[in-house]
Design a protein around this nucleic acid. Structure first.
Length: 558
RNA sequence: UGCCCGAUAGUAUAAUGGUAGUACGACAGAUUUUGGUUCUGUUUGUCUUGGUUCGAAUCCAGGUCGGGCAACCA
């Protein structure tokens, strides 16, 4: 009830308003959207925003969404990308009504072009690319039409057929729409509809040697599918008049285009071109490198679909340029992981502690798998006289408010006993070799009768029971908030410490049963998930995100 | 200096002519066997100048600033 109420009270974004208007006025019975990726790269979190918008809108208003690959440029497109895109959309939890390809419509688009030629609205131009560009004029000056625009309908029909038949080389001729060379909108200055490319297409093979441009494929594809709301990013605003012009001249279903601002995130880049560079030039290991803002990167890093959906919901949809704080994404994943992650104790940088008055060989202590969720139950952890704690959890000369271990100071070992540090044994070079501590037998967790209050609780691992693993700690990929907006090339701002590998960490035995679908919180250290590089003998964990650490933050300030 | 789009706390996002609110961040405190979680509180905002109106973040006009448009890319 509460949730329904919130749903109703939540204000609509501008696209939802448009949708509701169309529904209420009877303009649409049902809405149909589409997600139209070009299969020339992996999807990133910016696409996730678009996916959530397109599929989310359909879901909310009881409509449907098509997945349509915009594959009109065979030179850059590959089947590998088609697979990854489908996997990513499904992973986010969306199912498409139909899987289509712009290339499905090549024959129909060809007929559309012929129709425009017959209406005297398209012509074959023999000019070079430079000539066409020069004739287009400038934003402040009108363009000039050349002699080819005067060709007869019959000649154009013939030449266009010859283009298709492969009688010309790449670049020799193009088909252009005859719109308005003097338009203040450059997109309307007789835009190119078809170009010649003798290239192998990932679906149509060598059937075609002419391929439609975006502007003569996208809107027509929308129309063929009866898309009601064709939602794209802001850079296509100037294309909208052309989008409408083609549809009007062709007299086909009037799909409408609406534009929203693309997502930008701090400390990363969000263009396929730049991401491709990072992969090709080995700044990262792959498209799904956990430092990448790709959907596959976030997946491998341990982000959940829920967290990304939540994020998309929180950032909203608008038309103004934006740069979202990474901290918002991190908030979303921490919020979800806090609820679902199994707690485990793992020591990253070990310091041995000998509990001198502990005479038993070992015993099992009980600890909750997740204090946020009582349904998850408990696990048993072996405790013994020799344990590891983090080096950073001991200081010989601690500052005030250091709630951890120091000579004479007491701490709680999580789910076990309170110990007191009696002595720090040193190496010849003065570094700490190990700690000698004594434990308080009546302070056992759950049956503590000692009455002793301590300020700090440490995670720990029994030395002889410990299992090992490799950890990969990730930090932001770039040192600056907006690398694309800096003076120099964006790659100069890469964070050299974005990946830190710890070859061996020590974990409680329960971690041995780690699974790929499970999420873990390593107590006081962060959220982790098993990486696909793991093998039977070696576990590898990715740090999804750290825990909030107010102590570290305070130390940094000093 | 052509045309188009936009401008609300540090960052996002609401308020649709009638009390400028929410989230994240930051800061302070309480709770806590994770310096986590949770809870409470504080902080900071309508780009500017005019106009319309009883009343303007909202409507109008001028300006300023930011973004986009002159690929045989999408």
């Amino acid at each position: 009830m509460e949730e329904i109420k919130n749903e109703e009270e939540k204000s609509l974004n501008f696209i939802e308003e448009i949708v509701e208007e169309g529904l209420h006025s009877g303009k649409h019975q049902k809405i149909l959207t589409r997600f139209p990726p070009e299969p020339n790269g992996y999807l990133h979190i910016g696409h996730a925003k678009s996916i959530c918008l397109n599929f989310g809108l359909a879901k909310k208003y009881n409509g449907k969404t098509n997945l349509r690959f915009d594959d009109t440029n065979p030179v850059t497109e590959e089947t590998e990308y088609v697979g990854s895109i489908k996997e990513d959309v499904r992973w986010l939890g969306f199912e498409w009504a139909n899987e289509f390809y712009a290339s499905d419509y090549f024959e129909q688009l060809y007929e559309f072009a012929v129709k425009l030629i017959k209406k005297g609205l398209a012509y074959v131009d023999d000019s070079t690319g430079d000539e066409i560009a020069a004739q287009k004029g400038a934003p402040t000056e009108p363009g000039m039409r050349n002699k080819y625009a005067e060709r007869s309908i019959e000649e154009n029909l013939l030449l266009f057929a010859d283009m298709r038949a492969g009688k010309y080389a790449d670049g020799e001729k193009v088909l252009r729409a005859k719109v308005d060379m003097a338009s203040p909108n450059m997109q309307l200055r007789d835009p190119i509809m078809y170009r010649i490319k003798h290239a192998h297409h990932h679906r149509t093979g060598d059937k075609w040697c002419i391929y439609p441009m975006y502007d003569f494929a996208h809107g027509q594809s929308d129309s063929i599918e009866n898309i009601t709301h064709s939602i794209c990013t802001l850079e296509f605003v100037a294309h909208r008049p052309l989008y409408n012009w083609f549809i009007e001249q062709l007299e086909i279903f009037p799909s409408k285009q609406y534009e929203f601002a693309r997502l930008n995130l701090t400390y990363t880049v969000m263009s396929k071109r730049k991401l491709l560079q990072l992969v090709n030039e080995k700044y990262v290991n792959s498209w799904d490198d956990p430092r990448m803002p790709t959907i596959s990167g976030y997946r491998r890093r341990g982000y959940t679909p829920e967290s990304i959906l939540k994020f998309a919901d929180k950032i909203g949809v608008q038309k103004r340029e934006n740069l979202i704080d990474l901290s918002l994404l991190e908030f979303c994943i921490r919020e979800h992981l806090n609820k679902i992650a199994l707690r485990r104790m793992v020591v990253l940088d070990p310091l041995k502690v000998v509990i001198t008055n502990y005479k038993k060989d070992s015993e099992l202590v009980r600890s909750e798998d997740n204090p946020e969720d009582e349904n998850t139950g408990y696990r048993e952890i072996p405790f013994s006289a020799e344990i590891y704690i983090e080096k950073e959890d001991f200081m010989e000369n601690p500052p005030k408010k250091f709630f951890r271990l120091a000579p004479g100071q007491k701490v709680r070992l999580k789910s076990a006993y309170i110990i007191q540090c009696d002595e720090a044994v040193k190496n010849a070079d003065g570094s700490i070799a190990e700690l000698r501590c004594s434990y308080i037998p009546e302070s056992k967790s759950g049956s503590d009768t000692s009455g002793i209050k301590v300020q700090g609780t440490l995670h720990w691992v029994s030395v002889k029971h410990a299992v090992t693993a490799e950890l990969r700690l990730y930090d932001r990929l770039f040192r600056v908030e907006d690398p694309s907006n800096e003076e120099n090339d964006f790659k100069e701002y890469i964070n050299p410490d974005s990946l830190q590998v710890i070859k061996t960490v020590y974990a409680e035995p329960a971690l041995k049963k780690a699974g790929f679908d499970e999420r873990y919180q390593f107590l006081r250290k962060g959220y982790f998930c098993l990486d696909k590089d793991s093998s039977k003998d070696k576990m590898v964990f990715n740090r999804t995100v750290t825990l909030k650490d107010t102590w570290a933050k305070e130390q940094k300030k000093k």
